[in-house]
Nucleic acid binder design. Sequence first.
DNA 1: CCCGGCAGATTGTTCAGCAAGTTGACTGGC
DNA 2: GCCAGTCAACTTGCTGAACAATCTGCCGGG
Lengths: 231, 231
Amino acid sequence: MVTRVQVTSVVDAIATDLRAAVLGGELGPGASLTEAEVAGRYEVARATAKAAIERLVAEAVLERSTNRTARVVRLGPADVRDIYLSRAFLEAEVLRRLARAGTPVPEAAHEANAEIRRRWEASSFDVVEPDMRFHSSLVDAVDNVRTSRMYRSLTSEVRLCMAQVQGRQLLSPATIVAEHERILDHVQAGRGDAAAELLDEHLARARELLVGALGGQPGPEATLPSSVLPA
Amino acid sequence: MVTRVQVTSVVDAIATDLRAAVLGGELGPGASLTEAEVAGRYEVARATAKAAIERLVAEAVLERSTNRTARVVRLGPADVRDIYLSRAFLEAEVLRRLARAGTPVPEAAHEANAEIRRRWEASSFDVVEPDMRFHSSLVDAVDNVRTSRMYRSLTSEVRLCMAQVQGRQLLSPATIVAEHERILDHVQAGRGDAAAELLDEHLARARELLVGALGGQPGPEATLPSSVLPA
DNA sequence: CCCGGCAGATTGTTCAGCAAGTTGACTGGC
DNA sequence: GCCAGTCAACTTGCTGAACAATCTGCCGGG
């Protein structure tokens, strides 16, 4: 049997650590990251720090323009809407394709949803990890590497959102579990359109709560019944 | 009035030039690109060449694993299917949303299609640029920066495919123009599902021709009538 | 013929340094 | 007091040289 080992370069390790720091909230939005600063903190050459920073800029974790120092991105209401809408685009179509192709719902999706339920019953409200896992497992089920890759970049930004609203309560786990369940049912039964519609509402609700937590005004659609939610 | 100037760093310029070389076919699939080689060719420091190469690796124009020299990616039949399927995912949903929201079809889409027709009437068969523009303009019409960004990374890979089949004739311009026209009609009339279905067939056909040109075996669905094309 | 090891090529990373660009504070004029 | 211009400190973009670790191909020994 072949066991693959993950060779991580120094740049990799630093990028990973910095990403964790941002996602963990140790580096808040707008925090500046100088090349020399990073180089000093990890005791590496400036070129190495530069490479790590550039990688995170490419990942949209940091932002920087020429000759200016990198900062942790600050996601505003417009960004959240943009992110959640593109999520909806991808995921809705994925559900339709899964339903049409009759692909059985992946076990991982059920498992992830069960994990949310378990945490909720254990009075834990930190369910973003299994929630992400639920959605990702569905996208991965279409077995398309580019689609999975694109979705991963979106989840990374969603995590960033979560880090920036730090523990603020959003959708209740109970609601999440129930809606996920219904989505899976629709997919399993081949009702792609229904699944897509439900997902749209699910994401729209989460999105507006997130926008609210970030201090934005609710979108116009937030006051309409979900059945007429615009695309 | 404020005019924005595009400041391009050396790394930028080199990456752009190398990308053009790959897309222009001067660097065929599998061609190796040493850091020292690039540094020498442009008379820059190796670190600069390295950065340019890494950027192209991130763009999936080049590929490289640790301690190994970068090569121009060679796209196989599996890659083409993967790319075109993810294109279909994104674009189909875009068409549905445009149709549902009643967004008027962007002028740029009509214009791009007209350009294809003009070139065809001028007996030119190089219509990939306006073809791409047609599809991109539709995606851009939903006005979602992340979606546009994801689609752009796909078109970049499609261009790479085109570079690797070098002028081989694929879909006839006449077919392309007609199908585009019908897709626009469906969208304009609010028939999202019909538009999505048609797009699926359009892309599936292009995909299998491309796979054939790359020497792959046609997919199982290629022999079925397009009406039952799987998702 | 196969295997091991050696030499050259290539990458990962460091260090020191310079030019250009940015930032912020200080100063002088109004 | 406020604005504009100047200047110094900080920061980034890029360079050139260097060294260790890794990879590749070749050659000789078994």
